[in-house]
Structures are given as structure tokens and as C-alpha cells.
């Protein structure tokens, strides 16, 4: 099974391979998440359910259900 962004541990980074197409895919790309982008899982939210993600010089937050539409590879 290919891994998705929600499987990263805080501090880990990876590269986006494919975006699972849905209603919010364009929104993800608007926020800077594209295939080949390096994404870093910074931390998880205090009450769970959401992630603090960093891409280059952009910070963003997303839910688990949003992160699991983003397939990743080359975890570092």
C-alpha cells in the first residue's frame, strides 16, 4: 500500500507522489501541495484530528481526512 501524508510522524518529511482527485484537490494545489513538493509533518493538533504541515516557506493546517488523499514517497 502506498503511504499517505497522515502516516508521517512529527518531524518527518516526504515528497508528494499523487493527489487523490476530489472536490478539494484544486484547493490543496492552491495552498502549494503539488506532485513532487516536499512536505514536512511538523506537529499534530492539541486535540487531535488535524496536522500542522510545512511546505518550503508555507505553513498550513489540514485534517486527517484531507491528508490521506495525498500520497507520498521517499520519506526522510
Amino acid at each position: 500500500m502506498p503511504k499517505t501524508l497522515d502516516s508521517l510522524q512529527p518531524g518527518q518529511s516526504a515528497y508528494v507522489s499523487v493527489l487523490n482527485e476530489n472536490k478539494f484537490t484544486c484547493k490543496l494545489m492552491n495552498l502549494g501541495i503539488m506532485p513532487k513538493t516536499k512536505v514536512t509533518m511538523v506537529r499534530k493538533s492539541p486535540f487531535g484530528g488535524a496536522f500542522y504541515i510545512k511546505i518550503d516557506n508555507i505553513q498550513m493546517a489540514m485534517r486527517e481526512s484531507e491528508a490521506n488523499t495525498i500520497f507520498i514517497q521517499d520519506i526522510v
Partner: peptide
Amino acid sequence: STSYLMIELPN
């Protein structure tokens, strides 16, 4: 409609 969080955390 479906709900989303996806929000920019600006500098």
C-alpha cells in the same frame, strides 16, 4: 456540502 479545514497559517 462537504466540510474542510485546509487553511493557510500565514507568517
